[in-house]
Design a binder for these strands. Structure first.
Length: 421
RNA sequence: GGAGAGGUGUCUGAGUGGUUGAAAGAGCCAGUCUCGAAAACUGGAGUAGUCGCAAGGCUAUCGAGGGUUCGAAUCCCUCCCUCUCCGCCA
């Protein structure tokens, strides 16, 4: 969420940002409410000051044996009024909270203005798309023949979108996870193994609720939310905490399964591993000093790209336009890997800067040496990387005419085999 | 799951209705002393909201949320968490 003070003082900037994000503009309502709220606070605090003063006088009177009956009687009226004001204020605050949650983060000036995915800018491309004299097959054909991913039994046991990985596919996934985590720790990320369910407060902290509540599986009996990404527990790791400035940036890499209901996306790119209800992902999360967050976004992106380069997978980098960026980000890059069998780009990472948007919701600060004040940190995260689509791309790009799959060299020390056949 | 104990500022730890935002000690920052440091001494220091050009004032905050009261860290209720014992268990 944005700072109410910032909205109050820069309503025009915020309104413009809302327009660019194609969100609902509730700023005028917020400003009205803000005014009401401050009036109530003013009156309430005045009365409370009086109450405190008189109450301590009552104490003294009683001590010295005077009769305080009349004063107490008088304070009863004040008490009632304070109660009224507090009740009103509570309602106002709740309304304000609801409205503030509808205000999106404001895009960074470097982000291209646009409304649809077509307006996203491809800013970098790496690698050669595989050429071959035989027809490259989509991964589901290959895995079916090799018997290494079992969608049917997954459906039987859990439902569509919950496949089993069998034998070497399972090993390949495990290898990728280890490879990603090892790479991350080499680049200064602390490995974190996180809960895969979170409570309501955490889900709210990173913005999954109320914005995207229907994307999540919910264990209602215990009021727990299954995480759609490790971003949720890992960012909440430091909820309501204050860093020392010298400790920033703080960087984590977390591997978790991720659960997404994908409501409303049925029939869209759902074949094979392209879109699953459960998948594995290594997520990179950073808590940084505000002055460095855009540099940190670039290195975050590079850290993720590096993995694709080591795997030898052709990819491109998209700078997302204002309208396609999402509610909470100020700037976002998507990394898309080329899947030769489908002749398609698949998103495997999304690297975002949230500035203080999440930090404010979660109350994550640092103590500034310069001002001695506490300020909100900036948070960033990016996948490093999402597994199933990487598996799909490896299978499709590294397939042989006989339908075997060559394991990328960097993974072979993890898999202990070089070919899936 | 059952039975107990407890949650106070950076930490230790006092405080069971009336100058308690909160004793005391440690730690931290600044100053004095010193060639410098240590020690000693003096002073300062939470967070948030709100009013104010500012100085500063006011309000809230002793796990969270309600309640009782003129007045709550202190009494009552609900919830959360930690610890000990028992049970169950990967």
């Amino acid at each position: 969420m944005l700072d109410l003070k910032f909205i109050r003082e820069h309503a025009d900037i915020v309104k413009n940002g809302i327009k660019l994000k194609k969100a609902d503009d509730n700023i005028d309502a917020i400003l009205v409410l803000d005014q009401q709220r401050r009036t109530l606070i003013g009156e309430g605090e005045g009365l409370k000051a009086k109450r405190n003063e008189v109450s301590s006088k009552v104490g003294q009177m009683k001590k010295s044996g005077e009769d305080a009956g009349a004063v107490i009687e008088e304070m009863n009226a004040v008490k009632t009024r304070i109660q009224q004001i507090d009740d009103e204020l509570k309602i106002t605050d709740e309304k304000m909270e609801d409205l503030l949650l509808t205000v999106p983060n404001i895009p960074h000036p470097s982000v291209p203005v646009g409304t649809t995915p077509d307006d996203n800018k491809s800013i970098f491309e790496w690698g050669e798309k595989p050429q071959s004299d035989f027809v490259l097959k989509p991964h589901w054909d290959i895995t079916g023949k090799l018997g290494i991913i079992d969608f049917e039994r997954g459906s039987k046991v859990a439902g569509a979108g919950f496949p089993f990985y069998v034998g070497k596919a399972a090993t390949l996934q495990r290898a990728l996870i280890n490879f990603f985590l090892d790479q991350a720790s080499e680049r200064g990320y602390t490995e974190l193994q996180a809960p895969i369910v979170v409570n309501k407060e955490s889900a709210r902290g990173t913005g999954q609720i109320p914005d995207k509540e229907d994307m999540m599986y919910i264990a209602t009996r215990d009021d727990l939310y299954m995480i759609p990404t490790a971003e949720v527990p890992v960012t909440n790791f430091h909820r309501k905490e204050t860093f020392e400035e010298k400790d920033l940036p703080v960087k984590y890499a977390g591997y978790t399964p991720c659960f997404r209901r994908e409501a409303g996306s049925y029939g869209k790119d759902v074949r094979g591993l392209n879109r699953l209800h459960q998948f594995d992902k290594v997520e990179l999360v950073k808590f940084v000093h505000p002055s460095t967050s855009y540099d940190e976004l670039e290195t975050l992106r590079t850290d993720a790209e590096h993995l694709l380069q080591l795997l030898g997978l052709p990819y491109r980098v998209l700078l997302m336009c204002t309208g396609d960026m999402g509610f909470t980000q100020t700037k976002k890059y998507d990394l898309e890997v080329w899947a030769a069998g489908q002749q398609k780009w698949l998103e495997v990472s999304s690297c975002s800067n949230f500035e203080s948007f999440q930090a404010r919701r979660m109350n994550i600060k640092f103590k500034s040496r310069e001002t001695g004040k506490q300020e909100f940190v900036h948070t960033l995260n990016g996948s490093g990387l999402a597994l199933p689509r990487i598996v799909a791309a490896i299978i499709e790009n590294n397939q042989t005419p006989e339908g075997k799959v060559i394991v990328p060299k960097v993974l072979q020390q993890y898999t202990k085999f070089a070919v899936i056949e």
